[in-house]
Design a protein around this nucleic acid. Structure first.
Lengths: 343, 343
DNA sequence: TATTAGCACTTAACCACTGAGAGTGCTAAA
DNA sequence: TTTAGCACTCTCAGTGGTTAAGTGCTAATA
């Protein structure tokens, strides 16, 4: 990390904050006037030129003021985190009252959470419900549909219910299904989906020797049922961000809409981020997704112990009110965590 | 309906079709040249002036060509429907092969269908999965969660699985829950959700006299479980429509995004439309939703007998290729209907 | 009588130009 | 080391002139 003396830092922060508040490039005069450094514009100009040379600021054109680079935002955000200024603010409890009533239905809870976040922040609210990989099986239920088709319903301790229809290739009676479900429950309930998947593989290799027809069927069903399950991604607030001055450019809107339609990539990204603790921030070009390189992401995982049970966050322009965003995301994540723990 | 003589109609259709193909106001010269009426631009001009007087066309400004009004589109679309030209085209079976593999999971089927529709049409693809009101209960399952909380899982004959967590206010054993579920299944399975709701109300009034504690609990659970269930609405293809010349205007983009975020209103609209047979078309100002007054909707319900089991459709600009849209929607609806019937 | 050629008229779109305003970098003085 | 002063650069909004498209009207024509 490049070291900057106190005065230079302060000027950088002033530029960033001013730009976050007013979407125009900020000039030396503005900084000198608005932030009482006791310095003349000329001096500020020199410092700003230095900051530009170091890559923290850039000029859109010669006669314009300066705008932070992604590196500039990063430096600013690091200082925000170091100060943890946002932690001292009062929590948003009042605003979450409505969400509280939804605690029982986890999908609706997460989708409504994105709406609350986008209303509060005026950016895109995002949330991902727990990915089944890390959730604990409470009970599995098998139900015969038609011919060789059965439905497998997986209940997790977290309150999620996932279902999958499976074609067996041969008919089966409901009675057999009940026995299979009984076996699977005795064997697997209380384990995470990940553990179950591993166990199934192990059992299947043993099974080759044991050759119990029912058990082998059970394992096959199980393999299908637990294959390829993802958390659901919710996004809302597009009309909020379209009101921002950052989105008067059609090209940028297109990029954003393409980015949020590529749910699969975002899910993978959030998956990775959900492993980490606290608020995570990805600024513009730091993002690995091409369409996201002009936007920033602020997310936090909701955890139960150290197991991630969901992710909430914000997507917005790099010119984002990071302080407010961090504050909202941090608060929301804590709130969801608490709500899910209390249940 | 205003009657137009053959020549006037032809000229109206020519203007509409030309405008659909090229997003510029169409002038008399273009019509005369491109559509071999054997008339000079001057004559065409006179007819176009008449059409404008009658409200089928309008001029953006004095020296521009003409553009269809919503009434103009309506007249054109009526003739399309009368000819049923689109019915003669070959079905899109090839393109639906991928969807066929998803038939077992109805939610994913519908959400992927919207993607297919938007890719084919370059407009927004929309779909609504069966609203539970009209679906038939196959089985209800009750599972104890924690304290006084239970999960009710509703399986429908259509292959949908809905779940709801209910707080009872007092603890209950799983054994009791099983008995309640057994009772509810014997009583209600095979009935539509609507019927069940009515039955519950009836039973509850009787129950006041009979006073069986378990049954009264069962009915209470049932009432909760079947309360307020909606079909899910899926929308995709925003980045498709942003590429249309109709959406270079930020204001229009905002309107569209606000419209599709108001899922509740769209669901109610589709609900109404799902009662009708065949492809339904709503053009611009015909729409009751304010935000939708600049867009058109083309939808068709998927039916099982005369029971709607879902809706698929397109949202796009009023300058839409209606012929293609109708064709795609009609085909898709038939395809989904077939797939759900075969199951 | 219906159609058409001719023409004057209207308007948007494009382009080059201009002046104002904002903000810079550099230099020389404090 | 800081600052005042100044020349310089660039954007932006506004202006005026030109072009092209398309119209409506009128008078001639089949």
């Amino acid at each position: 990390m490049i070291m900057l003396d106190e005065r230079t830092k302060k000027i950088l922060y002033a530029v960033v904050e001013n730009y976050i508040n007013f979407p125009d490039p900020v000039g030396s005069r503005t900084v000198a006037k608005g932030y009482s450094f006791g310095l003349s514009p000329a001096t500020i100009r020199n410092v700003m030129a230095d900051l530009e040379e170091m890559g923290f600021l850039l000029q859109p054109h010669t006669s314009a003021g300066r705008v932070p680079t992604d590196m500039g935002y990063r430096f600013y955000v690091e200082s925000l985190i170091a100060e943890s200024a946002f932690l001292h603010k009062e929590p948003l409890r009042e605003l979450y009252k409505r969400l509280e009533t939804l605690r029982d239905n986890i999908d609706i809870l997460f989708s409504e959470t994105t709406k609350t976040i986008s209303t509060l922040s005026h950016y895109l609210g995002i949330a991902m419900s727990p990915k089944p990989e890390v959730t604990t099986l409470k009970k599995i239920e098998l139900l015969k549909y038609k011919d060789d088709k059965i439905a497998a319903i997986l209940f997790t301790d977290e309150g999620m219910i996932k279902n999958k229809v499976i074609s067996l290739g041969a008919e089966i009676t409901q009675k057999d299904l009940n026995r299979i479900a009984g076996y699977l429950n005795s064997e697997f309930s209380g384990h995470t989906f990940d553990e179950i998947r591993q166990k199934v593989v192990q059992e299947m290799s043993k099974e080759k020797i044991m050759c119990d027809r029912l058990i082998s069927r059970a394992l096959k069903i199980c393999q299908e049922a637990f294959y390829f399950l993802y958390g659901d991604l919710f996004v809302s607030g597009l009309s909020e961000v379209l009101n921002l001055p950052d989105f008067t450019d059609l090209k940028k809107i297109k990029e954003l809409s393409r980015a949020i339609e590529d749910k699969h990539t975002i899910i993978k990204l959030l998956d990775k981020l959900s492993e980490l603790d606290g608020v995570q921030i990805i600024i513009g070009s730091e993002n690995s997704m091409d369409e996201m390189k002009k936007f920033s992401i602020v997310v936090s995982a909701c955890k139960e112990g150290d197991r991630p049970i969901g992710v909430v966050g914000i997507i917005g322009p790099t010119r984002m009110n990071y302080s407010k965003a961090i504050y909202i995301v941090d608060n929301t994540a804590r709130f969801i965590t608490r709500i899910l723990a209390e249940r």
